[in-house]
Design a protein around this nucleic acid. Structure first.
Length: 151
DNA sequence: GCCAACGTTGGC
DNA sequence: GCCAACGTTGGC
C-alpha cells in the first residue's frame, strides 16, 4: 500500500465538490506529465490513500483524504478536441494519458502549505522540495503518520 | 501579473 | 544526443 499527494484546483474540483459528486468519486483527468502519469500507471493500486491538496488558489494546502478506487485507464479528455486537455498526438488505439478514479474518504483540518513548510519533520516531503511541480507525488509512510497527527 | 524552476520540442 | 527556445506550473 502506497501513499500519495494529489493536487487539484479547487476552482475545478475541490474537496467540497468531490463530497457532493455521485458516489463521491471522480476520475483524475488532466494529468499531462509523464512522471505523474507513471505514478498512476505503475505504482498506484486500488486502496492506496492520497492527500487531496488544493493548489492554484489563494491559500494552497491539504484539504482532505481520498482513496484510489480504480485501475488506471485512458483519460477521455485527451481525445476530445473541445477539451483543454486534448492531445492531438494521442489516439484511442495508443492512448498517451491515463487516469484513476478517486473516492472521498474524509475532510481534514485545512493545513496550509506554509504550515507544512514550518515542520522540520516533513523536510523531505516531495511536495516541499525546491522547484517541485509534480501534480502527483509519493508520500512516505513516515510522512503520512506525521501528517495524520495534524488532522 | 511576476518569475523561478522545470519539462518538452525540434532543429541540427 | 545536445541544447536553445518555448511552454507550463504554481507560489507569491
Amino acid at each position: 500500500m502506497n501513499y500519495w499527494l494529489m493536487k487539484a484546483e479547487p476552482d475545478d474540483v475541490g474537496i467540497d465538490d468531490l463530497m457532493r459528486l455521485p458516489a463521491q468519486t471522480v476520475g483524475w483527468y488532466g494529468v499531462r506529465n509523464y512522471q505523474a502519469r507513471n505514478f498512476m500507471r505503475d505504482d498506484m493500486a486500488m486502496g492506496d490513500l492520497a492527500l487531496f491538496y488544493h493548489s492554484g488558489c489563494a491559500v494552497p494546502g491539504i484539504a482532505g483524504i481520498v482513496e484510489i478506487c480504480s485501475a488506471p485507464y485512458p483519460d477521455p479528455t485527451q481525445f476530445d478536441p473541445e477539451n483543454k486537455y486534448f492531445d492531438p498526438k494521442s489516439t484511442p488505439e495508443v492512448p498517451r494519458w491515463q487516469q484513476v478514479d478517486v473516492k472521498f474518504v474524509r475532510k481534514t483540518r485545512f493545513i496550509p502549505l506554509s504550515e507544512l513548510r514550518n515542520l522540520p519533520a516533513l523536510g523531505s516531503m516531495r511536495l516541499l522540495q525546491r522547484g517541485n511541480r509534480l501534480s502527483i507525488t509519493p508520500v512516505s509512510e513516515q510522512e503520512w503518520h506525521i501528517l495524520e497527527g495534524l488532522f
